[in-house]
Nucleic acid binder design. Structure first.
Lengths: 347, 347
DNA sequence: GACCCCATTGCAATCGTATGCACGATTTCC
DNA sequence: GGAAATCGTGCATACGATTGCAATGGGGTC
């Protein structure tokens, strides 16, 4: 034996040791296949002694399934996404799949390039978390028989499956809550304008305001980035005619806004300004921020995503599905409350 | 053509269309191989028309390299790790590798099970981020010719490569800084006792204290978890004889401790208690926490990890390496300063 | 013009596994 | 008890690529 120890063990070697054919070994390790108890036992024994485990790649070559799911992801600095990654990976792992990670570059046109790379790995499915993909490329995936699920991002194309939370209702609930709290000058700090989440949250918010004949008092763009949100807050809240409530398009930016208001501008939250966010990342519950927000349940979204994805993989031709998970208002201390203290407006 | 569009394209089909042999197609797509300019052109043209891209899995089967790196990871709620994942994935992507993620379960004995799964995918290398792996299994990887790099975790076995930051010096620097700041009753909130990072940070800290004849005034265990750290802080700081400075083994726990001190116990930081952490995650710089801490550079650690890993993969028999990246003190506002305001103690 | 060298290309084997087919042995059923 | 159905197993092939080997051909040298 060469120095370095044992080399790769193949099914043929196990077969030889067990005194059976290579096919028999394969059958023992293939769930649906038929093998007699004694055969199974002999093969397993030989396999254990040799430390044999089937080569997934070789298996994939012939079965056409790799048990790999490609995940395209981008904003890991927003705590919502690590949570998603963790839960998604764990859920898939439990069902025998694994996640191959692709970090999406900032520039949008490169996404297609990334998806190409994913396809090279013969993945069984793709999850794109909050990144755009050209319809053209989506169709190529479909053509190649590879299901795609859009996570936290809607798309006009009804042929694509998508999972998102109810961003519009969430935005609306926040508006109702702030109205009930007696606010009158509303600011909005937007995420990246190309995102459907951004669009829907804002739409829900301004629609409800409009029903009371109110328009946004101020609006700025934070692009879902911490530093840009801080900058947006500075310009929005400098000067006397500032909002008395601000909806920040996600929690990650809301933290930046709160810090600027408190530590740079000396404003009190919620006495001087109410701040609300969206996502309910764990940090939102920490006392330093204690942020009133809307819960986007990573758990529920991941469950839906996995269900849809596995369904598409294992059913030949299941129709595209879109799931919207509820997004309840989570009432904390960063926004003034309605007089009666409760909130009947989250519907 | 069946409904659903084009099926998978193989090199043989490209060959037919270009009027050349299948080997020729392979050579055009294999970097080192020889092919005439006109051949290359014809093949590329045919490939583009058909939308052909080589099947990485099939290639892996014969070359023995999958260009997949297995990453075992666990504590994604600590912001340091998403940062690592992002940088690691990006760095590997740039060098033509991709990351297959394996979430490690809490129980330690299951880790080996996870690594087995990884091996099934014929990965070219493994990075284990802050999780233990039995020496036995590490040797099996070595035997299989699969390099392993321990990230943020040391191990006695000198045959394993490892990357970590200088935890000991970091802990020592914090002790010197707090001593210079005039503190006298030192608390320590530990991470998970099985972790080398925990051990080394504490050792550096208490060693320096010992040089001044001081021992820990209080000690509690937070297991690197936010909620457990909060609980530890409650017990440590309830009662009159509380520490006037506390070193929390990482930033993630330090945030919990600060919140408890301020919002539950009404203590001022740093006037009543100084708090220092370890990692310098982005949030540590946010005004709400403004945490004095030690920087553990994800950037530098990832660079080292990738260098070592690729080296092991591409050089047949490169010796195990261990890298320690510097861990400088980052002075912010959560700890009282030495009288002269500067800090000459970070050496 | 004979020779050699090198670049280019095709043929065929190979990687490790799954699986259709054929065949023998066993069981089931009427 | 014989036919049919069922089960277990091995043989051989296929998956989609890489690569050693040999054949071809063109160019350079004397």
């Amino acid at each position: 034996m060469p120095p370095g120890g044992l080399e790769k063990i193949t099914s043929a070697e196990v077969a030889k040791r067990a005194g059976v054919s290579q096919s028999a070994v394969s059958r023992v390790f293939t769930p649906g296949a038929s093998a007699s108890p004694e055969m199974t036992q002999r093969v397993r024994r030989a396999a254990d002694e040799l430390g044999y485990r089937p080569n997934i790649l070789a298996r994939s070559l012939i079965t056409g399934r790799s048990r790999i799911i490609g995940l395209v992801i981008s904003y890991l600095e927003n705590n919502f996404y690590p949570e998603v990654l963790e839960k998604l990976s764990a859920a898939l792992q439990q069902r025998g799949y694994h996640v191959l990670v692709f970090m999406a570059p900032q520039s949008i046109d490169n996404i297609d390039h990334v998806v190409q790379e994913i396809l090279d790995y013969q993945v069984d499915g793709i999850v794109t978390a909050s990144v755009a993909m050209s319809s053209d490329l989506a169709m190529r995936c479909r053509a190649a028989g590879i299901p795609v699920v859009l996570f936290n991002r809607a798309q006009d194309d009804p042929r694509l499956s998508a999972v998102e939370s109810d961003n519009r209702s969430g935005g609306a609930a926040l508006a109702r809550f702030l109205l009930a709290g007696g606010h009158s000058r509303f600011g909005y700090i937007a995420g990246w304008e190309g995102a459907s989440t951004q669009r829907d949250r804002e739409a829900g918010f301004v629609d409800v305001l409009a029903q009371s004949g109110i328009t946004l008092h101020a609006r700025a763009v934070g692009n879902f980035r911490h530093d840009e949100a801080a900058e947006a807050a500075r310009t929005m809240f400098t000067g006397p005619d500032r909002p008395d409530a601000v909806f920040v398009a996600n929690d990650h930016m809301a933290f930046a806004v709160m810090d600027v208001l408190r530590f740079e501008l000396g404003l009190r939250i919620p006495e001087d300004v109410s701040v609300v966010g969206f996502d309910d990342v764990p940090m939102a519950a920490w006392p330093s921020y204690n942020l009133t927000t809307v819960r986007q349940s990573a758990e529920a979204m991941v469950t839906q995503t996995v269900d849809i994805l596995i369904d598409h993989i294992e059913q030949d031709d299941s129709a595209p599905r879109r799931a919207t998970v509820p997004a309840p208002l989570i009432q904390r201390g960063s926004a003034r409350l309605p007089d009666n203290g409760s909130n009947p407006y989250d519907t």
